Simulated assay, not measured.
Amino acid sequence: MDAESRRRLMARFRGRDTKPEVAARRVLHRLGYRFRLHRKDLPGRPDIVLPRHGAVIFVHGCFWHRHSGCRVATMPKTRPDFWRQKFEQNTQRDARNIAKLHAAGWRVLVLWECETKDRDKMAEILLDFLKPLPPFDAAA
């Protein structure tokens, strides 16, 4: 593949409104949750923000964000040094943004692309994440 063809191919990857992200939003909406999208004032611009629940959700692509153990998270055969550095920067940035969100009091869920394929399993993951926290008991 020549450089121009590769450039056109890579330009087609979107950063928002991806199929996995839209699938997660549909499931959340069916479950009765209301949310905001891509809040620019939060670190990492989370895909889904649920302010009432103090929660944010990132819908990560398994390839780009290196889902550990996933068959999609392969290493390209061409230019491995470039890709290794690119993936390392992505994962470091993700970790920094998640740490900043935790420090600001947000609960964070990373929903992986492969987890969005089974709607029932995704609904379980989302419900488990969004269930109310038990009251804090300092005496215990």
Rank of each mutant, 00 (worst) to 15 (best):
G105K: 10
H53S: 09
K100S: 14
K121Y: 13
D2R: 08
S68K: 04
R12S: 15
D94K: 06
D128L: 01
R16L: 08
D81H: 13
D41V: 01
G54Q: 14
K86A: 04
H53K: 06
R66E: 05
W106K: 06
I48R: 10
Q92M: 04
A138G: 02
A103C: 00
N97V: 02
R71C: 04
H65F: 02
R25I: 03
R119A: 14
A103P: 06
D120W: 05
D128W: 01
L101S: 13
G32F: 08
L111V: 08
A23H: 01
V27W: 03
A99Q: 15
D17T: 07
E124P: 00
R6K: 15
G44H: 08
L9V: 13
A123I: 05
L50D: 01
R52Y: 03
W106I: 09
A99C: 12
A104H: 11
A23W: 01
L109A: 12
M75V: 07
R84H: 09
F35N: 03
K121D: 13
Q89Y: 03
F58S: 09
R16I: 10
M75K: 10
D120H: 07
G69E: 07
G105P: 07
K77V: 03
D41C: 01
S68Y: 02
T18F: 10
K77T: 04
H65I: 06
R93M: 09
G69V: 05
L130Y: 09
R16H: 13
R84I: 01
F35G: 04
K121I: 08
P134H: 06
P20M: 10
A11S: 15
F63L: 11
E115Q: 15
T74Q: 04
A95C: 04
V72I: 05
A55Y: 05
A55F: 12
M122D: 02
H60M: 09
V22D: 07
W112I: 12
G54M: 06
A138S: 14
T74S: 05
K131Q: 11
L127H: 00
H67W: 02
G105M: 12
A11G: 14
A95L: 14
R7L: 15
V49R: 02
W83L: 00
R16D: 08
F35C: 02
R96Y: 10
R79F: 00
R66T: 09
T74D: 00
K131V: 00
P135Y: 00
G32Q: 11
L42C: 12
C114R: 10
V22I: 15
A99F: 08
D17K: 09
F35D: 09
L133E: 15
R25P: 00
G61A: 09
A99Y: 11
A11K: 15
D17S: 13
N90K: 15
F58R: 06
R16Q: 14
R93N: 15
L9K: 15
K117C: 00
K100L: 14
L28E: 04
W64Q: 13
C114E: 11
L111M: 04
G61L: 11
V49N: 04
D94I: 08
H29R: 13
F82L: 02
R93A: 14
L127K: 14
T74C: 06
I48Y: 04
F58Y: 11
H29G: 03
F35Y: 15
E88R: 05
A55M: 12
S5G: 11
P132E: 12
R93L: 11
D2L: 09
